[in-house]
Nucleic acid binder design. Structure first.
Lengths: 226, 226
DNA sequence: CGCCATTTTGAAGGTTTTCAATGTCAGTGG
DNA sequence: CCACTGACATTGAAAACCTTCAAAATGGCG
C-alpha cells in the first residue's frame, strides 16, 4: 500500500514535472520517467544556498524547477567571476573530469530536481535521444559563454548593462514570464561582476538609460521602452 | 592495383596521422580508421583562408594537422570578436542547429583534416568511446570560453596580455613545441581583439612587460623571463 | 521607527582609448 | 642594390571612460 503510494508520487514527480517540456527529460518515455523518478529528489532551498562547489566531486546534476541560480568561478587570483544566471528549465552540474567547475548559489528561494549522476549516465548510454538532447544543452551553454565574451570584449558600460537587461528579459520569456517588466532578482554587485564593471558604474549606467528614456523604473519594476 | 594503392594511402592517412593521439580519432580501432580514412580529405591552405563561415550549413568538421586557425564571430553590431586560436590537434566545426556558429580563418599556412559530418555522425553513434571523447572535446571548449570570460572581466591590460602570452605558451607545449620562445603568429590586432583591448594598448602593455623584465624580445622571438 | 544592507550620486584619480605621428620590415620595381 | 610602398607596430599627448573614495539616499525588516 505504502509502496503503491510512493510509486504514484514518483510517477507524478517526473511525468507531471512543470519543466519537463523544456529539458532533456522530455526525451524519456513513460517507463523511463517512472524509473528515473525513483532516483531523483526535489529540494527546496532558501535564497543564498550553495548548491554545489567548485572542485567538489560530482554526485548529482540539477534541474531548476523554480527560482534563480547564479553560477560563478573562483579564479587563480581568488576573485569571483559570475559566468551565468540560471532560470527554471536550465540544468547544471555536469562537467568533464569528475569535479564541478563552478559554484552554484541560489539568489532566490529555489526548487531543484536533483539527479544522481550515476543513474543519469545509465540513461544517457541507453537512450540516444536523451544523449543528443543533453549534447544540445551543453552546446547551448557554450553559446551563452560566447555571448558573454562578446559583451565583455566589445561594449561600453551602458551597452553592457542594456544588453544584460535584454538577456534577462529573454530568460524570463524562456520560462513563461512576460518580457516586461524585467525582474532583476540579482544585486547590482552580481550584475557588475557578470559584466566586468564596478557596482557604481552599473548604477550610473542604469540612471543614464533612465534619463535617455530607454528604460523606466516604477513600482511595477524595470520596463524596457523600445 | 590502383585500388590497392589508394587503400594503402588511405590507411596511412589516418593510421599514421601525426595528431591522432591528441584527438578523438584515437578512440577508433584499425578497421574504423581504415574506413573513415576513405572519407576524410587533407587540405593545404595558405595563410588568410576562410575555412568555414558563420551561418553556413555544416558539411564538414575539421582537425588541424599543421598551422594555426583563428576563430571569430560577427556580432549583431557587425563587430568581429575572436573567441579562440586553434593549434594542431584542435578540432572545430561541430555545432548544434546545422550551421556554423563562427568563422574559421588560417593565420598561417595550414594543413587540415576534413571529415564529412554525415560520416562522422555515423561513427559517433556506433562508437561510444568516440562519443565520450567528442563530449570531452566540447567540454574543453567550454572551459576555454570561461577562461576567456575570466580574463576579459577581471584583468588590467597588462595582466590580460601576460595571461595571453602564457596561454599561447601552453598551446605550444600542447602540440610539442617548447614553451619558450613564444611564437606569436597572430597580429597585434588579433591579440587586441581577443582581449577586448585596442592595438595600441596591447603594444604599450608588451613594452611595459619588457621594461619590467617580465619578458624579453630578441631575434629568437619573445621570451618569458620567470 | 530605526537599523543595516544596498543603491545612488559626486568628485578626484587612474587607465584605456583616440587621434596623430613615427618607426619597422618585407616585398616590389626602378 | 636601393628607394618606394603598404602593412603592421610603437610611441606621444589629449580626451573619454571607468574606478575609487566618500557621502547621501533608499528600502526591507525586526
Amino acid at each position: 500500500m505504502q509502496e503503491t503510494q510512493s510509486m504514484y508520487r514518483n510517477i507524478n514527480k517526473c511525468l507531471n514535472c512543470k519543466i519537463r517540456s523544456k529539458i532533456f527529460c522530455d526525451k524519456l518515455n513513460e517507463d523511463c520517467l517512472d524509473q528515473i523518478s525513483k532516483e531523483v529528489r526535489h529540494e527546496n532551498l532558501p535564497k543564498g544556498s550553495i548548491v554545489l562547489s567548485q572542485n567538489d566531486e560530482i554526485f548529482n546534476i540539477f534541474n531548476i524547477i523554480h527560482g534563480i541560480i547564479k553560477v560563478y568561478q573562483i579564479n587563480e587570483n581568488g576573485d569571483e567571476q559570475i559566468i551565468g544566471f540560471l532560470y527554471p528549465g536550465d540544468f547544471f552540474g555536469s562537467h568533464e573530469g569528475g569535479r564541478y567547475e563552478f559554484y552554484a548559489e541560489s539568489i532566490t528561494p529555489v526548487k531543484l530536481c536533483k539527479i544522481p549522476i550515476k543513474e543519469f549516465r545509465k540513461y544517457l548510454s541507453l537512450n540516444k535521444e536523451l544523449h543528443d538532447s543533453f549534447y544540445v544543452a551543453v552546446m547551448n551553454e557554450l553559446k551563452l559563454a560566447r555571448m558573454q565574451i562578446n559583451i565583455l570584449a566589445k561594449y561600453s558600460a551602458e551597452e553592457k548593462v542594456l544588453d544584460f537587461l535584454k538577456m534577462i528579459s529573454m530568460k524570463q520569456v524562456g520560462h513563461g514570464q512576460p518580457e516586461n517588466p524585467i525582474n532583476l532578482q540579482m544585486t547590482r554587485s552580481d550584475i557588475a561582476n557578470y559584466l566586468g564593471l564596478k557596482i557604481e558604474t552599473v548604477s550610473r549606467a542604469i540612471t543614464k538609460l533612465r534619463v535617455k528614456n530607454i528604460i523606466n523604473i516604477n513600482e511595477n519594476g524595470l520596463l524596457m521602452l523600445n
